Simulated scan of single mutants.
Amino acid sequence: MHERHGMMDAMTRRERPVLVYDGDCGFCTTSVRFLERNVPVDAEVVAFQFADLAALGTTRERAEHEVLWVDRAGRVSGGAEAIGRLLTAAGGIWRVPGVVMRTPPVSWLAHAVYRLVADNRQRMPGGTAACMLPAAQRPGAQG
């Protein structure tokens, strides 16, 4: 995975998929860095605070709510579905858990676990009290 260089219009086919995460959340950032080191997927990685969300076909509200995966065709997936698509795109041994976690009934459990973790990310390793606040109310937020 590589940092963002430039976004293309959402209606244009992308050369690489894009992973969008909350760059103000310590837990989210730690999780993304783990993925970058351990999952061999060729994708752009960008904090939503620095992304052109409209060009990616999504909104700030959605990006604040969940991690997003924008595939090369411009399809936006969020939460556990996004992680499943990222793993599937990585191929190799990562493809199996990626497909499994997007298939019912495992997908239902994956969604529930994702929401539980996302809703409590301030309590997770690397999380801070700021993770609990809406992005606009975090220390240093520009409004």
Rank of each mutant, 00 (worst) to 15 (best):
Q142G: 11
V76H: 07
A118W: 03
F34A: 12
M8H: 07
T103M: 12
G6Y: 00
R102Q: 11
F50W: 09
M8R: 13
T12L: 05
T58W: 04
Q122T: 06
V113W: 00
P125L: 09
T12M: 06
A136E: 12
I93T: 11
T103F: 01
G126F: 07
V76D: 11
T12G: 05
A90L: 08
P40K: 11
T29N: 10
A130I: 05
M7N: 02
R37V: 06
G126P: 01
L35M: 14
H65Q: 15
G127D: 07
R95E: 14
Q122R: 06
L68Y: 11
P134C: 12
L133N: 04
T30M: 09
V100N: 03
M7D: 10
P17L: 06
A90S: 10
R62L: 15
G79L: 03
H111S: 11
V70A: 13
L133Y: 04
P40E: 04
C28M: 02
A130Q: 12
M11N: 13
E66I: 03
G143P: 02
T59L: 08
V70I: 15
V46D: 06
G74F: 05
V46G: 06
P40S: 10
M1P: 10
M132L: 14
A110P: 01
R4P: 02
G79S: 06
G79P: 07
A63G: 11
C25F: 01
I83H: 02
V76K: 03
R16G: 03
R95N: 05
A112E: 10
W69L: 08
F34K: 04
N38H: 14
A82T: 10
V67E: 08
G23V: 01
E15F: 01
A73C: 10
V99I: 14
R121M: 09
S31M: 02
Q142V: 08
L19Q: 01
L133I: 08
R13L: 04
E36Q: 12
R33T: 13
R138A: 05
Q49D: 14
C28P: 05
H65D: 15
T59V: 12
E44C: 05
T12A: 14
A136S: 12
C131Y: 03
R4S: 14
H65T: 15
V100E: 10
T103R: 08
A82W: 00
M132C: 09
V67N: 06
A130F: 05
G26F: 00
V18A: 05
R72C: 15
V46P: 04
P105L: 10
G26P: 00
L133K: 09
H111N: 11
T103E: 01
V46K: 03
S107C: 13
A129P: 08
G6R: 01
Q122V: 12
P97F: 06
V41F: 01
L68M: 15
T12Q: 11
L86Q: 02
A10M: 04
T88S: 13
P104H: 13
H5I: 14
M7K: 01
Q142E: 10
A89C: 00
M11K: 13
L133A: 14
L35D: 04
R95V: 08
A141C: 03
R13S: 10
M101H: 03
R95S: 13
L19V: 15
H65A: 15
N38G: 07
S31V: 00
F34P: 01
P105H: 09
D52L: 07
H2G: 12
G26C: 03
E64P: 09
V45W: 04
A118Y: 06
